[in-house]
């Protein structure tokens, strides 16, 4: 078994702070949406705005971190090994096949993760931030005192913001499940907590490979 340092301190701090903020945003956001009552509307709005501003601050720092450390390159989508990764989730995982892509400090994301996180960072989160800012700072057309950002109404902004929120929930569900697909069920979680992730060492990979191949062959002979 190998142990590799994958997630740096800031990255872990960022991840867990973001998790907390996103949960608060979702929980208060859907109260504002009218889905349920918990904090009370006024408080929900207040917490939502507070969380949103905190989130923005975190985003600013994180963008800086990504460029300062060159970590942003991790998110450039690639098609290399993409098919293997998809095959792993669809078939290999059930046969205890080894992970097709090796996680390293320089490449911590598999091709599918790269694609999803790229979408998240370039489309979904900007959409939520942009509509969220409009939501906070829009102004009705009006003569006199307040006139900066005029829009006709909230409908489009609110609808897109809500759509984004639903997609985030779907992402979280898939994300929380997929972290169980590491070397062991908890190895990904441990990695995000400690920074160190456990991997199969070369021996284990070898073993797994032969085991899954022989299992395949067995299945074939049975079929014949």
């Amino acid at each position: 078994m190998n142990k590799v340092y994958i997630y740096k301190a800031y990255e872990r701090f960022w991840h867990w702070t973001q998790m907390f903020i996103v949960f608060l945003l979702l929980f208060t956001g859907f109260e504002i949406h009218g889905s349920y009552q918990f904090f009370g509307y006024e408080e929900a709005v207040r917490y939502h705005e507070f969380a949103a501003i905190t989130f923005l601050v975190l985003v600013v720092f994180t963008i800086f971190w990504h460029f300062a450390t060159d970590e942003w390159k991790q998110y450039i989508p690639t098609v290399k090994n993409m098919k293997d990764q998809a095959n792993y989730y669809l078939f290999g995982i059930f046969k205890n096949a080894p992970h097709p892509v090796r996680k390293t400090q320089l490449s911590k994301l598999n091709p599918l993760q790269r694609l999803v996180y790229f979408g998240l960072k370039v489309v979904l989160i900007p959409l939520l931030i942009f509509t969220g800012l409009l939501y906070m700072f829009y102004r009705y057309e009006h003569q006199g005192a307040i006139e900066s950002l005029n829009i006709d109404g909230l409908e489009t902004v609110a609808t897109l913001h809500t759509l984004g929120a639903f997609l985030i929930i779907a992402f979280i569900i898939a994300h929380v499940y997929l972290i169980t697909t590491g070397h062991t069920v908890l190895s990904n979680l441990k990695a995000m907590l400690t920074g160190y992730e456990e991997f199969e060492d070369d021996n284990e990979v070898e073993k797994k490979l032969t085991a899954s191949q022989s299992a395949e062959e067995e299945a074939e002979t049975v079929n014949e």
Partner: peptide, 15 residues
């Protein structure tokens, strides 16, 4: 559109 009162039926269903 008023938050809390209104919602887009399609988006809510789709979501």
């Amino acid at each position: 559109y008023m938050p809390g009162r209104d919602f887009n039926t399609f988006v809510d269903k789709f979501g």
